[in-house]
Amino acid sequence: MRRWLSRYRYAIIFWLCFGVFRTSLADWNPIPSGSMRPTLVEGDVVLVNRVAYDLKLPLTDISLVKVDNPRRGDVVTFTSPKDGIRLIKRIVGIPGDTLEMRNEVLWVNGTPATYLNAQDIIEPIASGQSVPGIKLTERADKSQRSVQFMPTVRALRNFGPVVVPVDHYFMLGDNRDDSADSRYIGFVPRRLLIGHAHHILASAEIMDHWMPRFRRFGSPIL
């Protein structure tokens, strides 16, 4: 055993350092579903800054140092408070915010979001089927992003008003009618935030022989 450890010590050191790096500093996250369409699509792999908000003890949710506060509009990875699954969504509400949704329109602190640049789309869903949809630019609280709606899909289009508790965040998927977000799983505690997803590392057509989508490589997540 001692001889084996001596022979492979540099490889062991490398993988230990790599493990610490990935669990405490930076990470990547594959996108398995369409809940963040059109911003992120199935087959994207995103880069995640694990120390954007908190420096944590590796392999735990224990924060050692608070680095910065999450902002509305940030796309983040986090552990679901409902079932422990890792998810990726957009923060739309920070502590103290009053949120409401009326017929798909998001309201933040009494002000409705505005929706521009509507485009008709055809959105793929399960079993090889497609449904009509609408892609728009949503502007809310000095930030904007692309979102989409699928009017023929059954979804939760109204909620609130609700007030975001201290040290909690409200998440929505950009694919508003196909996202298991805070409308269903509740507020997300800060301790369950993993990191800020900021760029697309790589992307491939997972349903089309894994052909690479080079145009998405290195794209910032807006």
Score class of each variant (00 low, 15 high):
163 V>S: 14
170 F>R: 04
152 T>W: 01
200 I>Y: 01
162 V>P: 01
184 Y>I: 03
212 P>M: 09
145 R>L: 05
188 V>H: 14
159 F>W: 15
159 F>A: 12
205 E>I: 00
170 F>T: 07
139 R>T: 14
162 V>C: 03
206 I>C: 04
177 D>N: 15
199 H>I: 13
141 D>A: 12
187 F>Y: 15
155 A>Y: 05
175 N>W: 04
204 A>I: 05
181 D>W: 02
186 G>R: 06
184 Y>C: 00
182 S>F: 06
185 I>N: 01
193 L>N: 09
161 P>Y: 10
199 H>W: 12
180 A>Q: 10
206 I>H: 08
209 H>V: 07
175 N>Y: 06
207 M>Q: 12
187 F>D: 03
209 H>S: 12
156 L>V: 14
171 M>L: 12
157 R>T: 13
156 L>C: 05
205 E>M: 04
153 V>S: 00
191 R>F: 05
193 L>R: 08
168 H>P: 00
183 R>Q: 06
213 R>K: 14
165 P>E: 14
143 S>G: 13
158 N>A: 11
150 M>L: 13
172 L>I: 06
200 I>P: 02
149 F>Y: 10
145 R>I: 06
160 G>Y: 01
209 H>K: 11
193 L>T: 05
147 V>A: 02
147 V>F: 01
200 I>S: 02
141 D>F: 10
202 A>I: 11
183 R>K: 09
193 L>Q: 09
203 S>Y: 10
178 D>F: 08
165 P>Q: 13
189 P>N: 13
180 A>D: 12
156 L>H: 08
141 D>P: 00
